[in-house]
């Protein structure tokens, strides 16, 4: 049985990527805190958040790495792609440039993650319909062409934020269930946590230690 306030059987690692100012940190904050951060400073570094969710009766702990979007950090943030089970790729529906850069982000995501990493495209700021610069249809098409899950969401109103994070987890869980995601693979981004005495597992619920990864 569980010790501690709650327990879970899997840990999924997520990364959030995309141009500066598309609302990556706000999405994370909305997801973990159910709040909108109005004056969110640019992320200089990598934020880290966690939340327990439930998928098919399984408790899953999401470890979410929210990366800096500024171009100058691009080389550095590539370190974090490794071992991600899910990648949330975010653009801003009111700024076409952020949409135009998606292929570059996607290239990074494809090159730096494992083939089973679930990539979810999020068109953020869908509350700002009046300033829309990217249509839903074209983004949907882009997502379909590239085999991405897709939703338009709003970190401000919370619309579709849960869905994006949860659907990603469902897809990952499905991959585990149908065997396409090998949990034993080093970079699956998923840790299984059998119901064993917690004493043996002290570190499994911690973010991976930097020293452990050769970056």
């Amino acid at each position: 049985m569980a010790s501690g306030p709650y327990n879970y059987s899997y840990i999924f690692k997520y990364i959030i990527i995309g141009d500066m100012g598309v609302g990556k940190s706000c999405l994370l904050h909305q997801f973990t805190e159910k709040k909108f951060m109005a004056d969110c400073p640019h992320t200089i570094g990598v934020e880290f958040g966690t939340r327990i969710i439930e998928v098919s009766g399984q408790k899953i702990k999401l470890q979410i790495w929210d990366t800096a979007g500024q171009e100058r950090f691009r080389a550095v943030t590539r370190s974090y792609y490794r071992g991600a089970a899910g990648a949330l790729m975010v653009y801003d529906i009111t700024r076409r440039s952020t949409y135009n850069h998606l292929s570059s982000w996607l290239t990074d995501a494809r090159n730096l993650t494992n083939p089973n990493t679930v990539i979810f495209l999020i068109g953020n700021k869908c509350d700002l319909e009046a300033q829309r610069d990217v249509t839903y249809e074209e983004a949907k098409q882009f997502a379909e062409e590239n085999g991405l899950l897709f939703l338009e969401a709003s970190a401000k109103t919370g619309e579709h934020v849960e869905e994006a994070f949860l659907d990603t987890a469902k897809k990952i869980y499905q991959n585990i269930q149908d065997g396409s995601l090998d949990l034993n693979a080093a970079e699956s981004g998923v840790q299984h946590k059998p119901a064993a005495p917690r004493g043996n597992q002290l570190n499994t619920d911690q973010p991976p230690n930097k020293e452990g990864c050769p970056c």
Partner: peptide, 16 residues
């Protein structure tokens, strides 16, 4: 240069 200031079990801060 960009320095990565890492907290064990936590997030990273970049110092430019």
């Amino acid at each position: 240069d960009i320095l990565v200031f890492h907290l064990d079990n936590g997030k990273d801060y970049y110092i430019t």
